[in-house]
């Protein structure tokens, strides 16, 4: 049984169908990369999994149980955390408060332990704990956002475009943390525009195009033949493009 599955999931906004009939399994202890051009429905897919966007059809299974009808906070309490695009911190609170709210349901002692783990993972956070979240640099914000998600000690972490707008060195630092999370037994779903970085870390790969899956596999084809990816991005199935 997969940790988290989407079964024929559809979702959208108003008249727009953003994703249609998406069926994907997220296996335990693995990293799933989700790539695709702008507007392919990557973010909507994550939002549908977490409940930020309501389902128009299909099911979201958590360890085999349908959680598609649960509100976002209830799904989060099951063990799904998400780092949204644009980080979305609480600007009126300090870094420490942001992190602590991530571990809202944990005991005080448990929270302190998790806090230590987060600082171990992102040592830069140690020095800015009492700073207001409204004055952080982009990189710091991204670390706080990831830290806040990890404070819930999720089994499955969904991350939406962590590299967006960040300097390469900082992106490096964030990507270095991802394997550590897998080592700790977590599953990660990573949505990215930067295909190369995803290929480096992903155990499996989904390519979305106009709300549909155009590729689902381990991504090895692309590592061997990067040009084939361009075809997929244009919406061609891989075998056609290769032929």
């Amino acid at each position: 049984m997969s940790l988290l599955s989407s079964v024929a999931v559809s979702a959208g906004y108003g008249d727009l169908v953003a994703i249609d009939n998406i069926t994907i399994d997220v296996e335990e202890n693995s990293l799933l990369g989700v790539i695709g051009p702008n507007g392919a429905g990557k973010s909507t897919f994550l939002r549908a999994l977490t409940g930020v966007v309501p389902l128009r059809g299909g099911q979201v299974l958590w360890q085999g149980t349908d959680i598609g009808h649960l509100p976002a906070d209830a799904r989060a309490r099951k063990g799904i955390s998400m780092v949204q695009e644009g980080r979305r911190l609480f600007p009126s609170l300090t870094v420490r408060d942001n992190l602590e709210l991530g571990g809202f349901h944990a005991s005080r002692q448990e929270r302190a332990e998790r806090m230590t783990e987060v600082v171990d993972l992102f040592p830069a956070l140690g020095g800015i704990m009492d700073r207001s979240a409204s004055v952080l640099s982009g990189g710091e914000q991204q670390m706080v956002a990831l830290g806040r998600a990890l404070m819930a000690r999720p089994q499955c972490l969904l991350v939406d475009e962590p590299s967006l707008g960040l300097a390469p060195l900082i992106v490096d630092e964030i990507y270095e943390a991802l394997p550590t999370l897998i080592e700790r037994g977590m599953s990660v779903v990573l949505v990215e525009q930067e295909v190369d970085r995803v290929l480096e870390v992903a155990d499996s790969l989904v390519v979305l195009h106009e709300g549909r899956i155009v590729y689902l596999g381990d991504g090895s084809e692309f590592r061997e033949n990067p040009d084939s990816l361009a075809a997929v991005y244009l919406g061609h199935a891989l075998d056609e493009g290769a032929a």
Binding site: Q84, L89, F90, P91, F104
Partner: peptide
């Protein structure tokens, strides 16, 4: 207080509060 901070957080960003597993309702 923890709850007070969560209330302030709702003012900032309700979705992020939900994603932190906090019952915003």
């Amino acid at each position: 207080t923890k709850v007070g901070k969560a209330v302030k957080a709702v003012t900032d960003d309700r979705t992020s509060v939900q994603l932190a597993g906090i019952n915003d309702r």
